[in-house]
Each structure stands twice: as C-alpha cells, then as structure tokens.
Design a protein around this nucleic acid. Structure first.
Length: 569
RNA sequence: GCGGGUGUAGUCUAGUGGCAGGACCCGAGCCUCCCAAGCUCGUGACCCGGGUUCGAAUCCCGGCACCCGCACCA
C-alpha cells in the first residue's frame, strides 16, 4: 500500500500541505522537521556527486529576475499558452491547437489577437459540445511581479534555476580560468504557476531544482572520464521505441542511441546517484524525448524516470543538450559577448584583403551612421571585399538604410594576420533534478512493513535522525547514564533523539518508522561493565560496545567507514 | 480550468435533522531487564462562509482542499 508512506510522511512530520489553517493552497507543501532534514541530506548527497566529485562549484542566484532575462530565454513568449474556453460546457483548449486542427493551417507565431480573429471569422465552436468560445486569453506559467515601486519594472519568479547560471557565463568563464569544459551547479527554488497542480509533491507551484550547467566545446563532445563508466549498464527507452533496451554506456554511444559521450556520462552519473538514494535499478529507466515534446531549447534530452507505485513512471531528472541556444539568445538580447576562445594547435598565418575605412570621408558624409558604416566595412566578408576591389563599389545596409560605398570611402589593403584561435559559443549540457520528486521516490522506496510495523529503510546518510538513545527502563540509574551518552552523541555532531517513555520495543518501533538507522540502549550491564548496545534498524541485531566509543562508532557507521556486519564480527 | 467523488481529533474512522463515539497515536503516572504488553488518568475533531430549520456534522448554495477522468505540464 503506497498510500501508507504518505500517511507516515504527514503524521510523522516529513511534509504537510501548506497554509492549512487558511484552508490550504494547492501546489504548495511544507517540508516539516524530518522532511526538511531528509531533503537537506538528499541535497548534500547530490552535492557530493555533482559538485565535489565533478570538480564544479555551486552558486546561488536570485529567484526574481527582470523580464529581460526571460524575454531573451524565450519564456515570456514560449511559456504562455493561448487558451480559449467554451462558454457552454466550460472545456478549455489551446487556441492555436484548436485553430490548426479545424482550419488545417499553421498557427506558429500568430498573436493572440490574430488567433482570436481567426476564431471569429471562421465561427469556430467548441469541438466538444458546439458551444460558443470565449476570447483568447493568455496563460503564462511564470509568476509575475514588479520590482521597486510602481509598475514600470516587470519581474518574474524564475521558472528554472538555469538562466541564473547562463547569464553569469563571462564571470564564470574567467573564474574557471577560461578553460572548457567547466560546470556550475545550483540548488534552489523555482516557480511555475501550474493550471492545476495535482499529485502532491510531483507537481508543485514552488519546487526545488538542482541543476548543473556544463559548458563544453561543441566540437568536442567526448568526456574525459567516459571510460570510467563505459561498461555500466543503462536501461534505455529511445525515441519511438516501445520497450526498454539494456545497453552499456559504450554500446549506447557507439550505436548512436545516445548522441555523444558527454550526455551519456551524465546518464550514468545520474543513475549512480539515484541508486545511492535507494532507488532500485529495475525501477529506473532513461527515456529519450520525442522530437515534438522536446523543449524549445533542446537538441537531445533524456529523462531519468522512476517507477512509482502511486503515480507510475515519473520524470525525476532531465538530462539535456541545450546546445548554444541560451547563450546565443542572451548574447543577442543583451549585446554582451558570451563566447569562449578555442586556440588552434598551430597559429594560422594568412594574407587577406581588408577594407580600411577612411573616416575623414565617412564622417562628413554619413554623420551619425559613420561609425556603424566603418564597423560594417571592417566586418565585410572577404568575397565582398574582393568584389569591391574589382568593381570599386559595394552596397551595404546599416541601421536599416542602404548606403553605397566607393573607393573614396575605403581603401583595400592586403594584410598578413596570424590567427591563433577562434571564438565560439559553448554548448551546454544540463542535468536538471526535481528534488521534490526524488524526495517522494526515496520515501516510497524506503518504506516497507515488518511484522505489521512500518520501517523506513533510509541509508544512514539520508536518514533525518541518525541515532536514538534509550535507557532500557525508565529508572533513575539508567536514565542518568543514558542522558550522559545522549549528550556525548550530540556533541559529536550526530542528530539524535532521546526517549524513555513506554516499552523498549515501542521505542524501537517509533524510530524505525522515521528511519533512524541506529539505536543505543543503556541496560543494567552498562552499570556493571560500561558497555552499551547498538541496534541496527534493518536487521534489528545488536552489538555491545564500550560506552566511551559510542559516538565514534556511530560516526563511522553513518559515514560508511564501518558497516554494521563488520562490527558484529 | 471543466465534469464526477470526498472532506469528523495527529492518523484511520462511526454517526442521514435532536448531548459527536471509537481505535491507534500523543501526554502524565503505575508496571516492565530488549523489539508496538498491561492498568489508571488526560489532551484532542465535524474544512471555511452563507442559507433552510425550534434545532445542521447531516439538507441547500458558494468557496477552499484532496481523489478520479478530461485539458494542461515549454
């Protein structure tokens, strides 16, 4: 029963619907005490994989951006749905889809007014019931706000953390000492004003993303550490295919199923991360996006999907080759160069013809345009320069005006230049994680029942509470020692709970239900020989250890330096 | 956003117009020498707002939330 794990999550303080005392708002959840701790641990494990191990750094950018950012990224225009609803039956439709289906025309790029006009002109009716259709209205999934007083400066809550990293490219490029590839990571909140969020943590209006943007040279999509993962198996569901195929990373790339090593490296890396969280290999697959479902920026995209009992296959990670889409868009919109430099193995020497503008002529004749004319002349392709050399004139357009340039204005010169390299816009590989969804999958997979009792089989690293300290009985002499040990454990940095109420069995059951991996029990032997027992959650087995070493042993167990079976022998 | 269903303690639930009950959980105490034992006592709820009625958890209307289906999820 998968419902049970959500019941525990609610009852034991992992998550709860937000704003309950005011009736609740769908699409928002609080991480309650244990949930917040678990989420933090999950994020820390993510950091191990995608920041520390990869040699990347993490940044944190604002959640509110001026609209320029999302005009450039395409979210202002592409993140909008033109909707119409039927005034009779109430069904809502995408206006553009409805028109293109009914009239068999393309609706790409039409404005809302144009869509509206088409509906009126052709007297389109509701395809369901034939009722009258409302006006076309827009629905943008971004939350809009205003920056500062007044309504002049429009801002949006970011719908993804990615843009914050793209727009930092020049700074990051120099931070990484102008060498590609490099990656930058961010864990943070993102916001989408979903029309109707459902399914609890699976579709939230405010959610946590963990994203990495790796900037690479598009001419080299090999990965330096690919060989390390080449023989790892992946369950792949390629485009237009019904069934999962199991291939090694090497086979997937060699057969061209996954486009290149870089993408494939991150499929494997992502898989290793999800396995560490306790998600079983058989419940994992990578599904390639279909051409038509690919986001407006992506060249290739694979989703890591996890099979859940409650929701079926759900997407938890998207691993996309975003190409140069974003940097290109921001370069165009901002006017700031967002490029890297690629040095040639050997400098190229060559002679070539260039036009040298004569400013003394250009200035008086073209006045304000003169500067732009000169710039255009310098950038004229060599073939054009050659024609100019032959014909003595060329027509160029500057600031939407056509001007004719003759020998008076510019002189053809032959120069020898040494080209040491070239500039280019990097491509971006982006693994993007839905932390809330992964959180759900972790809980669902950790949950099982043992003799009718609930247990969360969370790894020590994930578990929100690492240890519990119990006196066997609620007796003064045991309580005193137990309290001392509890303090020692906490001072060692271990998040622990103390409990002396009810029977020892009940206390074990209580902590099993919230996934506490280890319980230290102080009994009457402790008073004799200064030893205590450590009980491991999953096996329910116990080992006796000197009380002075408890904190240290727990640390080793939690960090995985020692395993419990080792301790037993 | 549309249609259908549901909303009673922390959780699960009984209650179909007449004093809102139970189980588990939780708290205090007793008991208890290792896996949800027992006993005593205790805290705690009708989603919100309006209407009908002498009287509403119950009937009606509106809102909110959740579940299912449709649409949406670049």
């Amino acid at each position: 029963m998968s419902g049970d794990v959500m019941e525990i999550a609610l009852r034991r303080g992992f998550i709860n619907p937000s704003y309950e005392i005011y009736g609740g708002v769908s699409g928002f959840y609080d991480y309650a005490p244990l949930g917040a701790a678990l989420k933090k641990n999950l994020e820390d494990i993510w950091r191990r994989y995608f920041v520390v191990e990869e040699g990347f750094f993490e940044i944190s950018s604002p959640t509110i951006s001026p609209e320029d950012v999302f005009i450039a990224s395409g979210h202002v225009s592409n993140f909008v749905d033109p909707l119409v609803s039927c005034e009779k039956c109430g069904s809502a439709f995408r206006a553009d889809h409805l028109i293109s289906a009914a009239l068999d025309i393309k609706t790409d790029g039409l404005s809302f007014k144009e869509l509206d006009k088409l509906i009126r002109e052709h007297k389109l009716r509701c395809p369901d019931c034939g009722g009258k259709l409302s006006e076309v209205y827009s629905y943008n999934l971004m939350f809009k706000t205003y920056i500062g007083p007044g309504r002049k400066k429009v801002g949006y809550l970011r719908p993804e953390t990615a843009q914050g990293m793209f727009i930092l490219f020049p700074r990051l490029y120099s931070f990484y000492r102008k060498k590609l590839p490099f990656g930058v990571a961010q864990i943070g909140k993102a916001y989408r004003n979903e029309i109707s969020p459902r399914q609890g943590l699976i579709r939230l209006r405010e959610f946590t993303q963990a994203e990495v943007e790796i900037f690479i040279d598009p001419k080299d999509k090999t990965h330096p550490n690919f060989s390390r993962y080449a023989e790892e198996k992946l369950r792949l569901l390629p485009q237009e295919q019904e069934d999962v195929v199991e291939l090694t990373a090497r086979e997937a790339v060699e057969r061209g199923i996954v486009k290149h090593e870089f993408l494939c490296y991150y499929l494997v890396h992502t898989q290793r991360f999800l396995l560490e969280l306790g998600i079983p290999y058989e419940k994992l697959r990578f599904r390639q996006h279909l051409r038509e479902e690919m986001a407006h920026y992506a060249a290739d995209c694979w989703d890591a999907e996890v099979r859940t009992q409650r929701f079926g296959w759900i997407e938890v990670v998207g691993i996309a080759d975003r190409t140069d889409y974003d940097l290109k868009a921001h370069e165009k919109h901002s006017g700031v160069e967002l490029r890297a430099f690629r040095q040639f193995p050997e400098p190229i020497k060559r002679r070539r013809l260039v036009l040298e503008p004569k400013m003394s002529k250009l200035g008086p004749e073209f006045k304000r345009l003169a500067g732009k004319v000169a710039e255009a002349l310098k950038e004229l392709p060599e073939s054009e320069v050659e024609r100019f050399a032959e014909q003595g004139s060329v027509e160029i357009s500057v600031a939407e005006e056509k001007v004719t340039i003759t020998r008076e204005h510019a002189e053809v010169k032959e120069v020898e230049e040494t080209i040491t390299g070239e500039k280019f816009i990097p491509h971006v590989i982006e693994p993007s994680f839905g932390i809330d969804r992964i959180f759900y999958c972790v809980l669902e997979n950790a949950y099982y029942q043992r003799e009718g009792k609930n247990v969360l089989r969370l790894s020590p690293r994930l578990a929100p509470v690492k240890a519990a300290v119990f006196p066997l009985l609620n007796r003064e002499e045991l309580v005193k020692v137990a309290r001392e040990i509890f303090d020692e454990v906490k001072r060692a940095g271990i998040l622990a709970l103390y409990d002396a109420s009810d029977s020892i069995g009940r206390r074990y059951a209580r902590v099993d239900e919230i996934g506490v991996p280890f319980a230290v029990t102080i009994d009457f032997d402790t008073l004799e020989d200064e030893t205590v027992t450590i009980r491991e959650r999953d096996s329910a087995q116990q080992v006796r250890v000197p009380r002075g070493e408890v904190a240290e042993i727990l640390c080793d167990l939690i960090e995985g330096k020692k395993s419990f079976p080792e301790l037993l022998s």
